[in-house]
């Protein structure tokens, strides 16, 4: 027999088969018990012819197997094509929950400062006047000490008016270096409106170490602004007054809406006030028993609501207390 012709014929038949059945028929015809090649192999007498025929048989087998798998895959694909779903149709699984926007910002700020080597301190919300005022160098008669500004529980106990008492508690507990931030609820006697709430949130930062300068403070705040409001933001610092810092500054960031050109958000000044800061007043060091000649430090404290409103451009901070899922799910 002509092995070569047989192979050509078999390969052609396999290639021409267009269904699984057809491939099976080809297999029976060319490789089945009654096929020419099987007959020939049974009849072979010499080693060389046997090897040639076996090689032909193997190649035919491979070709037929391949053809079979190609066709099987094509058939599967054809069937799957019929099983299409509307991939644009939502299926309505479990809704995700969201962290409160203030929590998200709190974590962001915490993470920035954790990365800089600071620790996060949990202060108390109900404070003694000693920590809330005396230790922070609020003079007698300062308006903040008045019940018109502060919520009192009794004459010596208040709802903290800023997160700063945690500075004093932290310094009393440990020796320098101190690198800490403290975030949480604070309270003032403010009638709620679009920008005021008797309960609000502050972030407080405190650094005490050898050689800490005002330049370190402005550098740190500049970095924080860039992280919170965008790398292209610029910062400006203006003199101010707080009882617990000397010198005191107020920190401004270039407007993220108009980039300094002036717009309603920045009241056409190009700058947005973010919050107060300053070098820790030596009286605080004396209060907690640090040596003001050896150590210097800086502190800052801002409202988180203000950061949230500026960054996400919503006009009324009362939204943050309404807990309407349509609001919270946006963030």
């Amino acid at each position: 027999m002509d092995a070569e012709a047989l192979e050509r014929e078999g390969l052609a038949a396999a290639a021409a088969a267009i269904s699984a059945d057809a491939v099976e028929a080809v297999r029976i015809e060319f490789l089945g018990r009654k096929s020419a090649i099987k007959q020939a192999l049974r009849d072979v007498r010499d080693r060389e012819t046997g090897m040639t025929l076996n090689a032909v048989r193997e190649r035919l087998e491979t070709a037929i197997d391949e053809r079979e798998s190609v066709l099987a895959r094509a058939e599967l694909d054809a069937r799957l094509t019929q099983e299409r779903v509307d991939v644009t149709l939502p299926v309505g699984g479990q809704t995700r929950g969201s962290l409160h926007l203030i929590t998200q910002i709190r974590r962001e700020v915490e993470d920035i400062f954790l990365g800089l080597g600071y620790r996060v301190v949990d202060g108390r919300e109900v404070e003694t006047t000693r920590y809330n005022f005396d230790g922070l160098n609020f003079p007698a008669g300062h308006p903040a000490r008045s019940p018109l500004a502060t919520l009192f529980i009794d004459e010596e106990t208040v709802l903290r008016t800023e997160t700063s008492p945690s500075q004093i508690r932290t310094m009393e507990m440990q020796q320098p270096p101190v690198y800490m931030v403290s975030l949480g609820r604070t309270y003032r006697r403010d009638t709620p409106d679009a920008t005021h709430s008797p309960i609000f949130h502050q972030v407080e930062g405190l650094v005490v170490d050898e050689g800490i300068t005002l330049a370190d403070l402005t550098g740190t705040l500049d970095l924080l602004f860039k992280k919170l409001f965008g790398e292209q933001r610029r910062s400006e610092f203006r003199t101010h007054y707080f009882p617990f810092t000397e010198p005191s500054i107020e920190a401004y960031v270039s407007c993220h809406i108009c980039d300094g050109d002036g717009c309603p958000v920045c009241r056409h000044s190009g700058w947005i006030e973010v919050g107060g800061a300053g070098m820790v007043d030596p009286r605080l060091f004396e209060f907690v028993g640090y040596d003001p000649e050896r150590y210097s430090g800086f502190a800052f404290g801002w409202g988180l609501e203000r950061i949230a409103m500026l960054r996400h451009e919503f006009p009324d901070l009362r939204e943050l207390w309404r807990n309407d899922l349509r609001f919270s799910r946006q963030f």
Binding site: L116, G117, P177, Y179, V207, D209, G211, I212, T213, L214, A215, D216, T218, G219, T220, D222, L223, S235, F237
Partner: peptide, 9 residues
């Protein structure tokens, strides 16, 4: 005033 960062040793 320049912008620097504390040494943080």
């Amino acid at each position: 005033v320049p912008r620097t960062m504390p040494l943080r040793r």
